[in-house]
Design a binder for these strands. Structure first.
Lengths: 327, 327
DNA sequence: CTGAAAGCGCTTACAG
DNA sequence: CTGAAAGCGCTTACAG
């Protein structure tokens, strides 16, 4: 491997001078510059980031922790993150938890040991242990998707968007709306969205039936089974709200396989918008949380922190409702 | 930040001993081990990878270069890559070219400067300049999706799978099959698949009409426009083969918007299988290249190289045909 | 079983 | 405008 010493020797200067030239700080004579450039060109030299990082305490790498990359939601967020990172000459170290909570904590430590400059966590819970780990972190951690105590975070407007959607369903005439949620480990999705559902029913003086509230685990399969559980009840609901797109795919699969017509037999609304959704009949009425924009926004917040703004900041992301023909 | 010196001091040993204990090489007395563990526990110490890497010349990081993460194909490959990487305690540094060729070369250099142990490139071309850059690389580079000269690579069975699909369409009775391809910059997709299409038509004594051969740029939009171009010809074809799933989405959109019935008005076949495809009518007859498995396979090859097997190796990946009702 | 020493490839005051 | 020196946090022979 070619090192700065080789360059210095070949260009007849000290390595201080090479370094100064490379980093464009301090004076280097025109002549020296040219000799150095020539040698670099010939040797194909590039500086070792490991050495540089050890000295400067900066790596130019940001760690990203997410549940699973091969979901549309996550990959869109990553697209957004990547945009801002490229603009700022950062690279991305990507880790997947596959929804194992311990891994979030393990990766925060791992990423620090890899000397990343900052960490972006796509949050799935706000457990005490995780909050502690973030607090202990030497590098800034920002969180997308949960309102993480004491941490700069952006969360989705879970309550407002859900409540609005449920209201809309009620306006449309639905009176017996079932619910496919997730466990309360995930506050944003598991608690807040469910609360919005329950509150809105109550506001409209509709009964809240425990048997109408089912749970999945974010997987397609679990949406399928939750839908099955609901539809096997003696009295069937007239609509269903599913809290995530992935589970909605499963729920829809169950309904199609069993020849239920949407919306004639049962209305359906959900969250998230698929690239392919316009080819699926019916087009789902859904909440679009605009994940790519969210990825951009959270990364900008991290960049700010890396540039010295230390105050933690809480933002709520935007959303829009997309009206299909599933209601 | 806590360093190995702090640990050594607090545990009353030298930093050599701490290092030996941490890396489990060389002897360390039981007592010393316990003291060290205790101090590490208390301080939350973790070793700096930058320093370690500088010394050992290993980072435990693999660089991945791909066109765009938020496509189903790429994200599935990444899932596969990630699996093998996790098993082997490697981390993934992810870069996106957004199909700008210069970036492939730029990232190969960038990743090296970041001292990655190896590079996985999802190939989009086999340009001379790229081949040169790979040859110059200090670290092993493996390529998925192209038969890259002089480099360990796995490519998809582009010729065989395409020829088989075209034959199948002909068997089904189609006689005027149009083609949506990509430019020849991409040998695997742009040249080989087109050649398989042309050869197969010829073998069956069917005319090869230049106006039936159109090109997109991998985007959904370009598939839409290619389909439009084809369907605006005075004589319409009875089928279309689209070389990538993304462009097939666009082609289908055009056909649906213009009320063509698939397969009654025009048959359609493509490559790649979407998670949502089972909800789209018609179900596309397609070639499944099993991207996750391909990701696993290419990463295993890289791991072999990192363990010292230096011979370059060429593999052709498997595939299967999925029969829908679009033909 | 343990520690002192050298060195990995850089950057950064500092002195000239 | 330039170079010598120190030091970032580790690991690894080597001597004891």
């Amino acid at each position: 491997m070619t090192t700065i010493n080789d360059i210095a020797r070949l260009a007849n200067v000290s390595r201080s001078t090479v370094s100064r030239h490379l980093n464009k700080n301090g004076y280097v004579s025109q002549e020296a510059q040219e000799r150095i450039d020539k040698v670099i060109e010939e040797t194909g030299y590039f500086p070792s980031q490991s050495a540089k990082s050890l000295r400067t305490k900066k790596t130019g790498v940001v760690g990203v922790i997410l549940p699973k990359i091969s979901t549309e939601t996550a990959s869109r967020v990553v697209d957004g993150i990547n945009q801002v990172l490229q603009e700022n000459d950062y690279q991305m170290l990507l880790t997947q938890t596959l929804l194992e909570k311990e891994k979030e904590i393990a990766f925060i430590r791992l990423l620090q040991s890899r000397n990343v400059d900052g960490i972006i966590l796509l949050g799935t819970n706000t457990d005490e242990a995780l909050v502690e780990e973030i607090k202990k972190s030497d590098v800034p951690v920002v969180v997308l998707g949960q309102d993480m105590p004491g941490t700069t975070s952006i969360h989705y407007p879970d309550y407002k968007a859900t409540a609005e959607m449920i209201s809309y369903m009620i306006e449309k005439g639905y009176r017996d709306i079932s619910f496919i949620g997730v466990p309360e480990d995930d506050p944003a999705v598991g608690i807040v969205r469910k609360k919005a559902y329950i509150d809105t029913l109550k506001e409209h003086n509709l009964p809240v039936l425990t048997e109408r509230i089912t749970y999945g685990d974010f997987s397609i399969d679990s949406g399928y089974h939750a839908m099955e559980t609901i539809m096997k009840q003696s009295k069937k609901p007239d609509a269903v709200f599913v809290v995530t797109d992935n589970m909605a795919v499963g729920a829809m699969q169950y309904l199609k396989e069993n020849h239920y017509n949407i919306p004639a037999d049962i209305g359906m609304a959900t969250t998230g918008v698929s690239r392919l959704s316009k080819y699926i009949e019916p087009v789902l009425t859904t909440i679009d949380f605009q994940n790519e924009k969210a990825g951009i926004a959270i990364t900008r917040l991290l960049m700010r922190q890396l540039n010295g703004y230390k105050k933690t900041k809480k933002l709520t992301h935007t959303y829009r409702r997309l009206t299909g023909n599933s209601l």
